[in-house]
Nucleic acid binder design. Structure first.
Lengths: 124, 124
DNA sequence: TGAATATATGAGCAAGTATTCATATATAGT
DNA sequence: ACTATATATGAATACTTGCTCATATATTCA
């Protein structure tokens, strides 16, 4: 075999046609790929994970509470919450001067739990 | 109320004691937090997500196959695989000159599926 | 209206990261 | 032994990103 009518992005020639075709046809649409990776990227920061975990535990917290509980500056907290809000991971409710945040997606807690299983088993 | 015997990392004073205590006592241990966020961070890159998706679909692929299928240079592919391998998301099997990679964790596909649900619903 | 409080946000900086380039290692074939 | 092939890896670079600082907006209270 060793065809190389593929774009030769690699110099090797032992391409397994059908496996590659399998992989190619299973490719996620770009939009879905990007929204997926963006979701994971948001969860991939310790500060944001702590925020999500705190909201999951406490139900609803205002920015001030979150800052105090997680030892993060108000500005940093607002910036992070802004990202989480934009991705619809949290929702905000304004009450007087305070703004209360809560998780806006029931899947997220499930994601954390499932991910925790991997993290737990993988460690030696 | 409005106690501020907390470390005043924020200048506000409407801290809700019990909610904050709830959040604080639910804090994840640092090691677990970091391994969790590292897992998500790895999944939070489009290239790595494509690799994982390809392996999930094709079962086992050598570096050359992956490079060809995903249009990524051999070097970039090796670097990414190295990270995935270090985190035990993939395992490698050497066969002659080729090295075949496959997913090393049954949870990962589940994670992708669950995350996809969020990504699907969140879009307007 | 004026002062204080709670949150949001733009700019800038320091740290992290994905890719490329060059090169090293390992295996197979001649 | 020599060449070609497949993969791995260190260094450099361009790009991203999380935080801080300064400031803006909004709400409450006097």
């Amino acid at each position: 075999m060793t065809k190389d009518n593929e774009q030769l992005v690699c110099s090797c020639s032992i391409v397994h046609e059908e496996a590659v075709q399998n992989a190619r046809s299973a490719e996620l649409p770009t939009a879905r790929l990007l929204s997926l990776s963006e979701l994971f990227k948001l969860l991939g920061d310790p500060s944001r994970l702590r925020i999500i975990n705190a909201l999951s535990a406490a139900g609803e917290l205002c920015v001030c509470d979150l800052s105090a509980a997680l030892d993060l500056s108000q500005s940093a907290m607002s910036h992070q919450l802004s990202q989480l809000r934009r991705a619809r991971l949290v929702r905000s409710r304004k009450d007087g001067k305070a703004v209360f945040y809560a998780l806006d997606d029931q899947h997220i807690s499930g994601l954390l739990a499932l991910a925790a299983e991997h993290a737990a088993e993988g460690r030696e």
